[in-house]
């Protein structure tokens, strides 16, 4: 069976399992692909416009597999004697215009299209507010998935060709939905017990983060309507970018101290291990 090279949303790509001689191929949905029920048959269906990309999940390259396949057809008898069915697993991704040419989607394990944070994702967030018990952040980027909003970077008031002012939302009589307000951004909270893994009772928020810091964090839960719950309780998580009180860039010197590159002043942060 040949898979389509380019697809449009709604197009069927492949069945879940395909048997050809001794080779069993399993297809798993990847980026932009969903598993759908068509009556009594399940198949993979596209949700985006783009180019099909096949990734082998058991380490073999696609070329090898095609070769194995050809051999099988030629030496049908031989493989029957062997009687050893080969099972190959592939992931099917769709490369669309937003991630074209980037290698990110190859490592993407995300099913579907959304770049919204999911449980288990690593995100980059900016600290906006500190309280005694938690840190409020705004999520900017999901690692390996890109920025959260496709329109971000080009603000509402940006002036470029084709930029149209954002219309008033959900205010006109023509609206058919009763949805509520639009929030400022995708907010997150790092609670005091999620800042680090050890000596949780000794954590002080003021000595871990400062407003303006960029933090690498793990999504613990989708949280409530307003905030995602994030954690930095791992060596590779924590502050990755910070400026000192005087506004100079700082670099980490150990897991809880950062040093100003100009004055050499030390400040406390919960740092992420750089490498």
């Amino acid at each position: 069976m040949t898979l389509p090279g380019y697809v449009v949303p709604g197009q069927i790509i492949s069945p879940l399992i395909e048997k050809e001689g001794n080779v069993v191929r399993r297809y798993k949905p990847g980026h932009g692909v969903v598993e759908r029920d068509f009556g009594n048959v399940k198949a993979l269906s596209a949700t985006l416009v783009g180019k099909i990309q096949i990734v082998s999940l058991d380490g073999k390259k696609e070329d090898d597999i095609v070769m194995v396949d050809d051999e099988d057809l030629e030496n049908d008898k031989k493989s029957k004697v062997k009687g050893k069915p080969t099972e190959l697993v592939f992931q099917i991704n769709i490369e669309n215009k937003f991630n074209y040419g980037s290698s990110d989607n190859v490592s993407s394990t995300r099913v579907g299209t959304s770049v919204l944070p999911e449980v288990g994702d690593i995100v980059y967030a900016k600290v906006v507010k500190l309280t005694l018990v938690q840190t409020h952040v705004e999520i900017l980027v999901v690692e390996n998935q890109g920025t959260i909003s496709a329109e971000s970077g080009l603000g509402v008031h940006a002036s470029a060709d084709g930029v149209v002012g954002l219309p008033p939302l959900a205010s006109g009589q023509g609206s058919a939905s009763s949805s509520g307000d639009i929030a400022e951004g995708f907010g997150g909270i790092i609670r005091i017990q999620d800042v680090r893994a050890t000596q949780r009772d000794k954590v002080k928020i003021q000595e871990s983060f400062k407003p303006g810091d960029i933090v690498r964090a793990l999504v613990l839960s989708l949280g409530d309507g307003n905030n995602y719950y994030l954690s930095t309780a791992r060596n590779d998580l924590g502050v990755i970018f910070a400026k000192s009180a005087a506004g100079e860039h700082m670099y980490p010197i150990d897991w809880q101290t950062m040093k100003s590159s100009v004055t050499g002043a030390l400040e406390l942060r919960k740092c992420a291990k750089p490498f």
């Binding site: 939302l169 006109g172 939905s177 949805s179 307000d181 639009i182 307003n226």
Partner: peptide, 22 residues
């Protein structure tokens, strides 16, 4: 089309779809 954008208020399992015509 604008979105997906964050919403304020209670947790929703799926996106709200708002259509407006002018």
């Amino acid at each position: 089309v604008y979105g997906p954008k964050p919403i304020r208020g209670s947790f929703t399992q799926q996106a709200d779809l708002l259509v407006e015509a002018k």
